[in-house]
Design a binder for these strands. Structure first.
Lengths: 346, 346
DNA sequence: CTGAAAGCGCTTACAG
DNA sequence: CTGAAAGCGCTTACAG
């Protein structure tokens, strides 16, 4: 008798009096195996507490059932929510998630190595400054990958919110409500999300012939937003509206306004982007544009799975429209917000 | 010539004119292989862009280099921060993290199955209502595992903050500052974290002969905290101090107070627990006890790695003292806070 | 419907 | 210092 390890196909085959091949087939519900044998094998497997060794199976089947995940900075709750939804959606599809990276810094090559070492089936990248080099690697090795909340590089797949439109829409709604001194607080400058949202915002202002009051960089963090807010509000004359390109910075701006005793939205309107949970907290009640996270994840997984079955498929870029969440931090005529819907598409 | 797949040890061995065994040894820096051969093999491997197949290696070495991770509810930023730190600490140790579960709900058996399917080396569990059944499984299969922020079950390892002491300490400091109408807002009732913090808080009050003003359940969420705050403050006579057993609920309580126009800390003191990032936001400036997350993770990994090399090691429970963060939401005489340090240990 | 054989890519005693 | 052989646990053509 073997040293008592976990049971293997061999163990089961001996117990059932059939060959290992048959055990394998029976366990994988191969239609060719007779009902009786199949039932018997499955019963014995269950009795023995048999668990298939995914490593061995992957080695031969050349598909590991593992998908790599690159997560952005979790201190922005948006990415935490995204992670939760990705996991919830992908688990029922029989795939496992392996964490490649968490955080704001550059993704290193070593993490990408593990993708190949562990023979991952694909890769999901949420933000994180991804050098085009990584996209290139995935391309070269035909590794299916999709980026969420990030613009496509090379021929990869990417799913985002209509960021440009969102920014445009916000400017439109603020201008229509009479604001004329509008400031923008951008995020990390090298991120497409930040760039596009701000570009849409500025473009709309430019079309309406309104000069931007000021532009700040808030580095996509609460602290950055707070600091930007303080500087904007400390001046003798302050803007009458601020667009922070993400919610976490908008919360900082709101706290700055609170600090300066400036009434929101009477003296100043503040609008964010993302609709993180904290945006709807009673203490903030932030007007913002909600990213359609569920839809974005669903679309991303569709793209990814399609490429896992057919790696020759070309990359696709998808944009999904966000939804205005009108709360208490901005003066916007509701009919004007509707007009905003006509903002030009990306 | 083989179909052009990724290079394997065989490819390299042919190119280098040595046996596969030698390639394997050279690549793993086996001291017995001569300098020249080793250098040559490594050079060729690099030239060919060789990446070892971790699956094949794991199959024979019986250690996969993968650690399973069970994450609590990421909508509580505490768990997001924890995840980030765990990843940052474990990656340099050459282990990979596979996501088993994210969220507040019960961990299902299926997720645990994958631990064995993928031959994981160990498992890290952060909160999440873990049935004792899961602990039992790890025990039975000798799977090294450590729980963070969670009390030990059976003989498993567990690392937490001194939760009981923290609660005691807070009550002590509030009472010493003259509060007499103290309410507690608990989290999900079945979590040890919530139970212990509240128990310490109540025990101290009892020792001082002060009756608790009220006890609420806030389900460990912002909304729950906000609701609890509203109910406590809507009454004709309201408490003069509230201890929310975690920060995310304390923020809800603070927003409720703001809503009711009740001055913090003049009319009411509010204290939380965890020291999540939002606790130090200008809009809250919450007095709380910081969990020593870095230290907790470090200790947890020590325990885990020790058991990965020697699975027979017994379980250990560790408690690490938190740190009072005195900010703006509570009246506490600083000398009294120091006295609080003497609160009894768990 | 079932089995014997080969093989996925690596490592590791066992020889020499 | 190096190689031939066996094996990790599974699946999958190939026969029958």
């Amino acid at each position: 008798m073997k040293k008592s390890r976990h049971p293997t196909v061999l163990t089961i085959s001996e117990l059932a009096g059939v060959s290992p091949s048959t055990v394998s087939r029976a366990l994988n519900d191969d239609a060719r195996i007779s009902q009786e044998v199949r039932a018997k094998v499955q019963r014995i497997a269950k009795e023995q507490g048999y668990t298939p060794n995914a490593l061995a199976r992957s080695l031969v089947s050349r598909t590991s059932g593992v998908v790599g995940l690159v997560l952005g900075n979790l201190s922005n709750p948006f990415y935490a929510e995204l992670a939760e939804i990705i996991h919830a959606r992908i688990a029922p599809m029989g795939k496992r998630l392996m964490l490649l990276h968490i955080g704001g810094e550059q993704l290193d090559m070593e993490s990408m190595q593990t993708v190949f070492q562990y023979q991952m089936d694909g890769c999901i990248v949420t933000s994180a400054s991804m050098s085009s080099k990584v996209a290139e690697i995935c391309e070269r090795y035909r590794l299916p990958m999709v980026m969420i909340n990030r613009v496509a590089q090379l021929h990869s797949c990417a799913v985002s919110c209509h960021n440009y439109d969102g920014g445009y829409w916000i400017a439109d709604a603020l201008l229509a409500a009479g604001h004329r001194k509008l400031a923008a607080v951008g995020g990390r400058p090298n991120t497409s999300t930040s760039q596009n949202r701000e570009a849409g915002f500025l473009e709309c202002m430019s079309q309406r012939g309104v000069e931007p009051w000021a532009r700040y960089c808030g580095h996509s963090t609460y602290d950055g937003g707070y600091k930007a807010g303080c500087e904007l509000l400390a001046a003798a004359e302050h803007p009458d509206g601020i667009f922070a390109i993400n919610d976490i910075m908008a919360l900082g701006v709101l706290d700055a306004a609170r600090e300066f005793g400036i009434k929101v939205p009477d003296e100043i309107s503040v609008v964010g982007f993302d609709d993180i949970r904290a945006a709807s907290w009673a203490g903030y009640n932030l007007t913002t544009i909600a990213q359609p996270v569920e839809a974005m994840v669903e679309r991303s997984l569709d793209l990814l799975f399609a490429r896992m079955s057919d790696p020759t498929l070309a990359g696709e870029e998808h944009y999904i429209r966000g939804e205005f969440r009108i709360r208490g931090t901005a003066r916007l005529g509701s009919e004007l917000v509707l007009a905003g819907r006509e903002a030009r598409r990306e």
